[in-house]
Design a protein around this nucleic acid. Structure first.
Length: 709
DNA sequence: CTCTCGCCTGTTTTT
DNA sequence: CAGGCGAGAG
């Protein structure tokens, strides 16, 4: 194919990004500038114009869904299947490498992937064993600390060498034991998936060379959100051919808390000699008004490449700011606008999204939308595959495939109850660890005299059930169906007759139908292994259907990479968006601001911001003031509705701070009170007050709303 | 071993 | 306010 023919729908910058195929290329792509398009065309160009075989291309995207779409679109351009192309998330691609190279890492190809919940359980168990029950860092904190070490490719041994006295040195044995336990269970966590591949490549030149030679072209999307391990992986994989294109936008880097390093995108030209830089600055997504606001927001950040998005779009209308009395008013107010859009303006619910900072905010919108009879879908939160009944079923599958998986064993051996209680499981774990034999093997081989008789017979039944089901593992659906019947799990749910039981039963049937769908769509490999590999790495957005005919509800993080005609950004309050934690940490604050920028740039034409003057959190009524990000938007760029905006928007940037602990204060409608605590300084200070009249215990307030008495 | 009650803590965001 | 966890009874 002629390249002009393929590239006729791209702008000159995009074309440059596509046809620069040799050597390292850094594409700095602003929001809505067509970077996905560029990548899609580049895939097509490589195959169709340059004649590169699809199997020598390695492309990463942020979700597996995005990968599927990009591949499908590229196939349409090419006019044929891109067979054997490696495209997916870092995790799924590394998973594939690991299955092939498992042996070199002391794993078998049937290894289990532990999700965050699994790894937290494991950390808890280990901390109990190591008598760290009352350790000052919570298991959750330890788990995320370990995760952050892995993101930086720090092994337990290396950590041991650099750990400082104090809590770090206490984490060393937990990390060591955690890795050992994973290894014993023939399991990896999310971080291992990347880290192991990097270690493998570093340690084994033969294997490294084989993979690096195989992939002639590496493409990385959302490069601003890669962590150190992923960066290293890109370097290693591209070491032979050196043809690597990375695409990203430093203004949209929102995963710093997960180890993403902005400097990856800044350092790239230094690490990759001869990098060509392409900038995409024309926005095709939003109207001019929206883009002006977006630019006004992001220019307050200091850590960024200077760039200016421009567009040829129509002006559009001003984004609106609505101020509501409380979060319920916000919910019903937004839903009212949505129902007007749908009923009066004929907008499809597909084109509408409500975005928020935290998942907990979704509930009120759900209630209001249900009341208004507007169909909606919630993305994220506790996803389907994280529900306990689903995780139980998956644990059965995992154990069937990988008998060494001790965590899954412990999860389900007594579900439904088989007389194997906590202490029996603990004994088994001890025995298994000391003899170096997986728990399941221990149970199958038989000498369990150290357990109560009831537990022994329960285990016997359990083992024979698993052994029996093993024979069916070539077809997930068949196996799962039999599993559900034979375990009596549904019967157990029916009998407990809790309010949620019915829903949980339905979920199990839904899992069955997902297994059925998998079987149908993978006729060549219907195995449990394949199913688990797919399901374990699903993201919340993977379960989102853009054509569902429903309004979408999701966090701003989940919305990355998506776009909607009409967008509501809710809860723009100080302490919520930006989160209170970011208040005094400029780096965090800038990330929150980028998040706000991401939220804004999801919108094509109709944008509504909102916040509530009061909001309940942890059972307390909190008094809120507008997010500082709203103040950063010049007033003439916003259409403010809701009356009390001046109250919220117009306070002085004063220097003096007139309140101290114990000051007596007066609030316009809560009366007199006494200051208990002050966090922060200046206009951002949050003051906790004990009010006399109401007997309300605590209220967090912006001090500007208080008068000193 | 199992179940229930009551206490305590605390979530941002997700592969 | 909610969910998770531990203690204590059956």
């Amino acid at each position: 194919m002629k390249s002009e023919e393929l590239l006729k729908d791209l702008n000159p910058d995009q074309i440059k990004g596509v046809i620069e195929t040799e050597g390292p290329v850094l594409v700095l792509a602003g929001a809505g500038s067509g970077k996905t398009r560029l990548l899609t065309y580049k895939l097509a160009y490589l195959v169709k114009v340059l004649g590169i075989p699809a199997y020598s291309i390695f492309a990463t995207t942020f979700t597996n869904k995005a990968a599927g779409e990009m591949k499908a679109r590229a196939e349409r351009l090419v006019g044929g299947a891109l067979k054997g192309m490696w495209i997916g998330t870092f995790h799924s691609l590394c998973g594939r490498i690991l299955r092939i190279e498992a042996e070199a890492l002391g794993l078998t190809p049937e290894f289990t992937i532990y999700d965050e919940d699994d790894s937290l359980r494991l950390v808890k168990q280990i901390m109990r064993e190591l008598k760290l029950d009352n350790f000052k860092v919570s298991p959750r904190g330890v788990a995320s600390y370990i995760s952050s070490l892995k993101e930086k490719l720090i092994t337990p041994e290396e950590f041991n060498a650099i750990a400082m006295k104090g809590f770090e040195s206490e984490i060393v044995p937990v990390y060591k034991e955690y890795q050992a336990a994973l290894q014993r269970s023939n399991a990896v966590d999310f971080d291992d998936m990347i880290m192991y591949v990097v270690y493998l490549f570093r340690q084994n030149e033969e294997i490294h060379h084989r993979w690096a030679s195989r992939f002639q072209y590496i493409l990385v999307d959302e490069f601003q959100d890669t962590n150190r391990a992923q960066y290293e992986l890109v370097k290693l994989l591209s070491a032979v051919h050196r043809n690597v294109t990375v695409v990203g936008d430093d203004d949209q880097s929102i995963y710093g808390w997960r180890g993403a390093e902005i400097r990856n995108i800044l350092n790239f030209p230094n690490d990759f000699q001869g990098t060509k830089i392409v900038k995409l600055e024309q926005n095709y997504r939003s109207t001019r008004r929206i883009l002006e606001v977006a630019n006004a927001i992001v220019k307050n950040n200091s850590m960024r490449h200077e760039k200016r998005l421009w567009c040829n779009s129509e002006d559009g209308s001003l984004p609106t700011l609505n101020i509501y009395q409380n979060e319920y008013e916000e919910g019903s107010g937004i839903v009212k606008i949505i129902s007007r859009l749908i009923n009066d303006n004929g907008v499809s619910p597909n084109n509408i999204a409500i975005l928020y900072r935290t998942n907990a905010q979704s509930r009120i919108f759900e209630e209001e939308l249900r009341r208004a009879n507007i169909p909606y879908q919630v993305v994220g939160g506790i996803s389907f595959y994280q529900r306990s009944e689903i995780k139980d079923m998956l644990a059965y599958l995992k154990l069937i495939v990988n008998p060494k998986d001790n965590l899954s064993f412990a999860r389900i051996v007594n579900l439904p109850p088989r007389g194997v209680g906590k202490s029996s499981i603990q004994k088994l774990e001890k025995e298994s660890a000391s003899r170096g034999i997986p728990i399941f093997t221990l149970c199958r081989e038989g000498q369990l005299d150290f357990l109560p008789r009831l537990a022994q017979s329960g285990i016997k039944n359990f083992v024979s059930l698993i052994e029996e089901l093993k024979g069916k593992k070539d077809d997930v659906y068949v196996l799962l169906k039999e599993l559900v019947e034979k375990t009596g799990y549904i019967k157990m749910l029916e009998e407990e007759a809790e309010p949620e039981s019915e829903e949980r039963i339905e979920n199990i049937y839904e899992l069955l139908s997902s297994a059925y769908a998998f079987s149908e769509s993978h006729p060549e490999d219907r195995s449990v292994e394949g199913y688990l590999a797919e399901v374990s790495l699903l993201t919340s957005v993977d379960q989102w259907d853009p054509n569902s005919g429903r309004v979408s509800l999701m966090t701003v993080h989940s919305a990355k990479g998506l776009e909607f005609e009409y967008v509501f950004v809710a809860g723009l309050e100080h302490g919520l968006f930006p989160l209170a934690k970011a208040e005094f940490d400029n780096e965090l604050l800038e990330e929150e601001r980028r998040l706000f920028y991401v939220a804004t740039t999801r919108c094509k034409r109709g944008l509504w911001y909102s916040y509530a003057l009061t909001r309940r959190m942890h059972g307390n009524e909190n008094f809120c003031k507008a997010s500082q990000f709203l103040e950063e938007i010049p007033k003439e760029l916003l259409n403010v509705e809701g009356g009390s905006c001046d109250f919220a928007l117009q306070y002085e940037r004063d220097a003096d701070f007139p309140i101290s602990v114990n000051s007596r204060v007066l609030h316009p409608f809560f009366g007199f009170g006494r200051v208990l605590e002050i966090r922060g300084r200046g206009k951002n200070a949050i003051v906790t007050v004990l009010f006399e009249k109401f007997g309300i215990k605590k209220l967090a307030l912006a001090f500007t709303e208080l008068e000193i008495v």
